[in-house]
């Protein structure tokens, strides 16, 4: 009893307050400690969410606070789900998401595997590789627009040097076919080091004794890779995919700086589109419905993914 939460709290509290605390149950004390956090969560997360759900059924515009607000039922949801432009935006986001994750995991894992092998200058190379992720996305977006510039851009000149093509004959951010790849390339350049670091943590967590045992059993390198390295780093890889997936689903700054969502709407990702609806067109009700749809989508997909991740970890 002397060690109860009440006694410990009372001992560390001024005497007047301590007397009051002694009259409370453990459960009450726990609630007192947790209450500020719960209040903060309710105020910062839950209340805005409920408010957004409510707004999504109205025609409210935040730039006209005095205008009459009309209850429109499911009209906003219906409009969004039947709008071809929104689906095009979703497709652009899916393209960006899938390809960036694919390249980042592939290259990130390969780099981690190379860095994990002991060689001279290992630390220096690690530092150089992780440099891009230390830069601001807005800065990265801006300087890649120069790298992609057909007349003076280093990227175009490199491609021209390798292929013999005229550097001014193609525009990475002005061509409908190339623009989606231009944002994939930049995001991959910037965030592959992050995936590499997670993979490196996974690779370094594998005990050497397992490989030694496999070598005693005369397992080839190829077999060791597929039966030890991959399964044991899989939870780390899945974690990297989750992080990058969530980050890239809400990608905004880098793409805005790089392409502004163009040409046309080719690289207008959902977050850019949502921002335009909410804070440029000021269709707050409509944008709220849009945000709820995105929230449900991301929340649903993330929940399924986390369950899968837990199963992999349990294996």
């Amino acid at each position: 009893m002397a060690n109860s939460m009440i006694e410990r709290a009372a001992a560390a509290t001024p005497s007047v307050t301590a007397r009051r605390i002694r009259g409370l149950s453990d459960r009450a004390i726990a609630w007192i400690f947790v209450a500020p956090t719960i209040f903060l969560l309710l105020a910062v997360n839950i209340f805005p969410l409920i408010w957004t759900i409510r707004l999504s059924f109205t025609n409210f515009r935040a730039n006209r606070p005095n205008a009459e607000v009309e209850w429109v039922g499911l009209r906003n949801y219906q409009r969004i789900l039947t709008d071809a432009d929104i689906w095009a935006t979703m497709q652009a986001t899916a393209h960006f998401l899938l390809w960036t994750i694919f390249f980042q995991v592939l290259i990130g894992f390969a780099l981690a595997w190379l860095i994990n092998r002991k060689f001279r200058g290992n630390d220096l190379w690690t530092t150089i590789i992780v440099l891009p992720m230390m830069l601001s996305p807005a800065v990265v977006g801006n300087f890649w627009t120069f790298l992609y510039q057909p007349q003076i851009g280093l990227f175009n000149y490199t491609v021209a040097f390798l292929t013999g093509a005229d550097p001014t004959s193609f525009s990475m951010i002005g061509d409908v076919a190339l623009a989606p790849w231009s944002i994939v390339i930049v995001d991959t350049w910037m965030w592959t080091p992050f995936v590499m670091l997670i993979c490196l943590a996974g690779l370094r967590s594998i005990p050497d004794s397992i490989y030694e045992a496999a070598e005693c059993d005369r397992a080839s390198n190829w077999r060791q890779f597929w039966t030890i390295t991959i399964p044991m780093t899989l939870p780390f890889l899945m974690l990297a995919v989750l992080f990058r997936g969530i980050e890239n689903f809400k990608m905004f700054d880098l793409v805005v700086q790089l392409t502004g969502g163009g040409p046309g709407s080719t690289t207008e990702l959902t977050s850019i589109n949502l921002k335009r609806e909410a804070f440029e067109k000021w269709r707050t009700g409509y944008a709220s419905a849009y945000a709820i749809i995105l929230f449900v989508t991301v929340f649903g997909l993330a929940s399924i993914y986390v369950k899968a991740l837990n199963k992999v970890k349990e294996r």
Binding site: D85, G174, V176, G262, P263, G264, S265, T266, R276, E280, K281, W282, R283
Partner: peptide
């Protein structure tokens, strides 16, 4: 703003894209 952004989208999609 809504009128302008709609025009931006459609004109850019045709002219540039």
């Amino acid at each position: 703003a809504s009128l302008l952004l709609a025009m931006q989208d459609h004109v850019h999609s045709y002219v540039v894209a």
